[in-house]
């Protein structure tokens, strides 16, 4: 694919530099892996016979699956120098849209189509306003965050719309070789995302646009079109997430995806992606999601109260970032 790209030649130097900067992000993952190992040790000690079980692992991954898929899209947006505050609202809107009685009348295919189409269109609107309307991503997606959830409330009448088609709920029950389908979807999205980010022109352009949009433009990249596509990609991820969450909860509701934007952004940042763009790691983002999910899982297995959970969560996030910093400095010295 890369070889046939006519655009490769002119923007190659910028892209190469961007790719090199981008790969530095991977070095930070070590810190997160250490945190995950520490959490696992804590889990094994505090919840013996519960934490380190196959069932709990699958459950943990299932819980991480929806936010994980959303985080993949968010990683692209942030690396490209943007931000998407509307992901949770898009999930709410897509889940509500695909579970109205009219949508449910079309069966499982119609429902999935509705969720995907709505989320993709909303992502495209975000992208078009940012890229061609020259508006700040923060403002555009904040506005979308408010109005998409509003529209979801309007359509659903603020009721939880229960899915009546058992085939749809089955998405959350199905297993592929003993692994829940939702976890498989996360794995597929993550792998496709990784290849797209690290092995294609699209990915290298994403780094370039986020690193220095002007340089990218001078190198012949259509920055606006690329920005639009990145938000569409985030929308697509939200659509997949909405289908997964709707199956998981067996309902579409305007309260779905509450605070997902914060969870996803936090996972991306903790995963070593620069909030200013141009540098980042998809593996880090996924590790970030796993760290957060594991923390919650540990708390629930130990039956800790909410306030204690919140205090500890904050402390662990700071500790994880500090660990990463140390790792970074050591890398900086050795290289």
């Amino acid at each position: 694919m890369t070889a046939t790209e006519p655009a490769t030649a002119p923007d190659a130097p910028v892209l190469r530099r961007a790719a090199r900067l981008g790969s530095l992000g991977e070095a930070r993952n070590l810190g997160l892996i250490i945190v995950l190992v520490l959490l696992t040790v804590v889990g094994a000690i505090t919840a013996p016979g519960l934490f380190l079980t196959w069932g709990n692992l699958l459950n943990l991954l299932t819980t991480a699956s929806v936010i994980g898929v959303v985080t993949v899209g968010m990683t692209f947006v942030i690396i490209a120098g943007g931000i998407d505050l509307s992901v949770g609202a898009i999930i709410a809107l897509a889940s509500v849209w695909c579970t109205t009685l009219a949508s449910q009348g079309y069966g499982i295919g119609g429902m999935i189509f509705a969720a995907m189409a709505v989320a993709t269109i909303v992502g495209a609107v975000n992208g078009a306003l940012i890229a061609y309307g020259r508006m700040v991503p923060f403002i555009v997606t904040l506005a979308m965050y408010v109005s998409a959830r509003g529209l979801a409330e309007q359509i659903s009448g603020r009721r939880s719309q229960i899915v009546s088609d058992p085939a749809f709920a089955q998405i959350a029950f199905n297993k592929v070789l003993g692994i829940p389908l939702l976890v498989v979807i996360l794995a597929v999205v993550a792998v496709v995302g990784w290849v797209l980010l690290n092995r294609t022109t699209f990915g290298r352009r994403t780094f370039a646009v986020g690193g220095n949009a002007e340089a990218a433009r001078l190198a012949g990249i259509d920055v606006r079109r690329h920005t639009l596509l990145v938000y569409v990609l985030s929308g697509v991820c939200c659509g997949i997430g909405a289908v997964m969450l709707t199956a998981l909860t067996n309902t579409g509701a305007s309260t779905h995806g509450m605070l997902y934007e914060l969870d996803a952004i936090a996972a991306v940042i903790i995963g070593g992606t620069l909030l200013t763009g141009g540098r980042g790691s998809l593996v880090g983002s996924i590790l970030g999601v796993l760290v957060f999910t594991t923390i919650t899982n540990l708390f629930i297995l130990n039956n800790l109260e909410t306030p204690i959970q919140n205090i500890a969560k904050g402390a662990i996030i700071v500790a994880a970032v500090l660990l990463q910093r140390r790792g970074d400095r050591r890398n900086a010295v050795t290289h």
């Binding site: 069932g55 459950n59 943990l60 299932t62 969450l245 909860t249 919650t296």
Partner: peptide, 13 residues
């Protein structure tokens, strides 16, 4: 509903 599913699945574990 979403948080209910998330918390309950882990409480069951």
């Amino acid at each position: 509903a979403a948080t209910g599913q998330k918390v309950a699945s882990q409480v069951l574990q």
